[in-house]
Design a protein around this nucleic acid. Structure first.
Ligand SMILES: [Mn+2]
Ligand SMILES: [Mn+2]
Ligand SMILES: [Mn+2]
Ligand SMILES: [Mn+2]
Lengths: 218, 218
DNA sequence: CATTTTTTTTAGACAAGTCTAAAATATTAT
DNA sequence: ATAATATTTTAGACTTGTCTAAAAAAAATG
């Protein structure tokens, strides 16, 4: 079995690989985990010895197949627990991440799969992120940043890029949540603000918000 | 906040105080936690510094009020999670202890109480043990070891002393579980075996089993 | 391409929690 | 009460994961 720390590194490397390059740098990992580059190097060496990552000095790191498998199983647990917390315990979507950070490290061959069944096999977590299945298969749907859209598109909110409590709370104030539909009416060229139509009412979405909202056209 | 290790020590001291004396010895704790006496001394010192236990060199240790409060909160979490695993995820009562040992350390001001509500405020865990309420109040009901009974008593199974998977699995083979009623017909003086009547059928319960079964007379 | 800057690694230290072996204290037996 | 035995504590070591400061390597700059 792997330590919480090892699991957190694998998870971090996984998402950095996805968001950026094939090979992930020491500093990027350090920043994501709020730790120091030297600590990252230490841990990377350990992970490389266990064949969970492929590592060449000064050349960055990438997950091996077994490393990716572990990362995905941790992500699966994280997202299933988040779903549980929201669906069953009625937490708000901005309250669950930190708790899931802890729950994702619970070790039990059975627990996750029973939880999955109890939740009736959800495909997405409360933030719209896809949940890997028990074999580690994960399906990424096409999601576009609202900021990249031009005029007169109808879209539906399917995810958030920033899933910090701060951002999520702000979205709520704007009455925006997963599944909300709206139409883009106009983009203000000066500051990138979008005028949109939500539930028949006009609203204004700042560029910063639009850069963190994932939508699908309808 | 306290580390998992600290919480485990407090929990161990709590149950040893209850089962044995007011003051708990180093060796007892070591045995309960499968660790060495020297490690226990080290940890006890740390707990004493944090005022969680009262400690005098060579004289054993006992929980302070704040130590007891923490122990009870961990026990509360353990038993609520066990209840969740059995009631909601349909685990068997012999499969949940080890998972709950992990879940009991999850830190969240809210989580336990929401779980409690979700489970509709259970008073006992799947092994019959009482669940402390959110203020740390716990009610111990009178439970007697079956081994201490004489003849012709009617009783109901309300708990187990040994809650290891091995014992619980064996009980199932004997069709004994929480809530089962039976009548003691005879005690064999030679080896302490009890002849009992369960659901109209005669059965035989060994002394060793009787010494780990908690019952209430009816 | 040589120099400066940035990134990464190494060296050495530290805290938490554990261990073994030895010393100190307490308990039990004679 | 003394000696033998058992329990508890101390001393010193080890592992994991972290840190700071310095060295090494890579990348950027002129
Ligand atoms: Mn999350
Ligand atoms: Mn999420
Ligand atoms: Mn248990
Ligand atoms: Mn229990």
């Amino acid at each position: 079995m792997f330590s919480q720390s090892e699991e957190n590194y694998l998870k971090a490397i996984y998402s950095l690989e996805r968001e950026f390059a094939d090979s992930v740098s020491t500093n990027l990992i350090a920043e994501m985990l709020s730790t120091k580059a030297s600590s990252v190097t230490d841990m990377i060496k350990k992970l490389a010895q266990k064949k969970l990552v492929i590592y060449q000095k000064y050349k960055g790191v990438k997950l091996s197949n077994s490393g990716k498998k572990i990362a995905l199983s941790v992500i699966r647990k994280h997202r299933l627990w988040e779903t549980f917390l929201v669906e069953k315990l009625h937490f708000n979507w901005d309250e669950v991440h930190d708790i899931a950070e802890q729950l994702e490290h619970i070790k039990s061959p059975d627990l996750v799969n029973r939880l999955d069944e109890f939740l009736e096999f959800p495909t997405n977590d409360p933030h719209g992120d896809p949940i890997p299945d028990k074999n580690g298969n994960i399906t990424y749907h096409q999601k576009s940043l609202l900021a990249n859209f031009k005029h007169h598109q109808k879209c539906i909110v399917v995810g958030v890029k920033d899933s910090s409590s701060k951002f999520l709370k702000f979205l709520e104030k704007l009455n925006i949540s997963l599944g909300v539909e709206f139409e883009i009416k106009e983009r203000e060229e000066f500051d990138g603000t979008l005028k949109v139509l939500i539930n028949g009412k006009t609203a204004s979405i700042s560029k910063k918000v639009a850069e963190n909202l994932l939508v699908k056209t309808i």
